[in-house]
Simulated assay, not measured.
Amino acid sequence: MLCLSRLRFGLIVLLVAAILASAVSCRPGAQKKPAPTRFAKEPEISLYVNETGEKKKIKLEDYVAGVVAAEMEPTWPVNALAAQAILARTFTMENIQAGRVKKLHGTDASTSVEEFQAYDPSRITDNVRKAVQVTRGEVVTYNGKYIKAWFSACDGGISSSAKEGLAYTKTPTPYVKANVRDNCLSITTPENKQWTVRVPLAKVRAAVQKITGKDPGNISQAAIARKGPSGRAETIKLGNVTVGGPALRLALGSEVMRSTLLENIAVQGDQLVMTGRGFGHGVGMCQWGAHLMARQGKSPEEIVKFYYQNVSIDKLYP
């Protein structure tokens, strides 16, 4: 009787454990996260060479190496270059899936920065090749979909949301970490720590007309109308017309108005004078921040996840 009781007790315990396990596995949080389509081998993509009009086939990893070499200084630490490789590969796959260049040239990608991303195979070094190899096939996803793999040269010490830095609201981007402080100003170049630019008012007036379709007339005053959480100028008032900060930067030239992280804006004579810090939109990974973290021993994946939250880094192929 004692043995039979123990047997019954054991069966009950096993039954309860099975029920609990089943309940846990059915909970949404316990379900396996969705993942992107994987490939049996490294994909080959079609590339439109804008400089010559040539269309050619190229292995994805070779293409990524050319992008990393163009987008980041090849002499930088391998892990910084490797973080850039993960984002370049993600950007490539997300854009191929959207078919943006396919509509223009009938290819997966192009060598134009305006159409796709920078590409310069002449700058590829052993350092770049190593960075691409250690992250071979790795992409960043959120809920099984490729993220918008944004990055900028220097976020001025604090990152931005897509809405604030790019005025991007087309799709939700909850994976972008905003207001992250990365101490990049401690190692970046002097012109990124603080810059001043003087733009002729005639050029500013033409930019405002292009953006809004309104003529601001003779611009005698300028002010930041609204700042975002990271301190970036979301809107700027020029004369009697208000324009978006990101839109003004694009219209004036992204290397003229280096960022929207403005400290001061004013009209002086026949010029608009702006003082600010950083270089780029500040959304996603900061390259100088990646450089600093790589020097501190952070892995490529840790660097990426410093700037992107609740994401997975998936390996697409062997």
Rank of each mutant, 00 (worst) to 15 (best):
Arg198Val: 00
Ala23Gly: 11
Leu316Val: 08
Tyr142Phe: 15
Ala69Tyr: 06
Ala294Glu: 06
Val176Thr: 12
Leu238Phe: 10
Gly231Asp: 06
Val68Phe: 03
Lys56Asn: 01
Asn310Thr: 12
Ser25Cys: 14
Leu201Trp: 11
Thr212Glu: 09
Lys41Ile: 00
Ser160Leu: 09
Asn183His: 12
Glu114Thr: 13
Leu238Ser: 10
Gln268Thr: 14
Gly165Ile: 05
Leu272Met: 12
Ile96Ser: 02
Val208Ala: 11
Thr107Lys: 08
Ile187Gly: 06
Cys286Gln: 05
Gly280Asn: 07
Lys148Trp: 09
Val256Gln: 08
Phe91Asn: 11
Asn310His: 14
Leu262Thr: 11
Met257Trp: 01
Tyr119Ser: 12
Gly282Met: 05
Pro74Ser: 10
Pro216Leu: 09
Leu272Gly: 11
Gly156His: 02
Ala88Phe: 04
Lys103Leu: 13
Lys32Ile: 15
Gly276Met: 10
Val304Tyr: 02
Gly157Trp: 01
Pro216Thr: 10
Thr169Ala: 08
Asp126Lys: 07
Lys32Gly: 14
Pro246Cys: 09
Gln287Met: 04
Ala70Ser: 15
Ser254His: 05
Leu262Pro: 11
Asn179Trp: 03
Phe116His: 13
Leu60Cys: 00
Thr125Arg: 10
Met293Asn: 04
Val67Asn: 06
Ile96Val: 12
Pro36Glu: 08
His105Arg: 05
Arg89Phe: 03
Ala131Tyr: 03
Ile303Ala: 01
Asn143Trp: 07
Gly217Thr: 03
Cys154Thr: 11
Lys130His: 13
Cys286Gly: 03
Gly269Trp: 10
Ile12Asp: 04
Ala118Arg: 01
Gln209Ala: 04
Leu47Val: 14
Val311Phe: 00
Arg258Lys: 15
Ala247Trp: 11
Val139Arg: 00
Ala251Lys: 08
Lys148Thr: 08
Val67Gly: 03
Met72Cys: 08
Glu51Gln: 13
Lys103Val: 12
Arg198Ser: 15
Ala85Thr: 02
Thr141Trp: 01
Ser25Trp: 09
Thr92Asn: 09
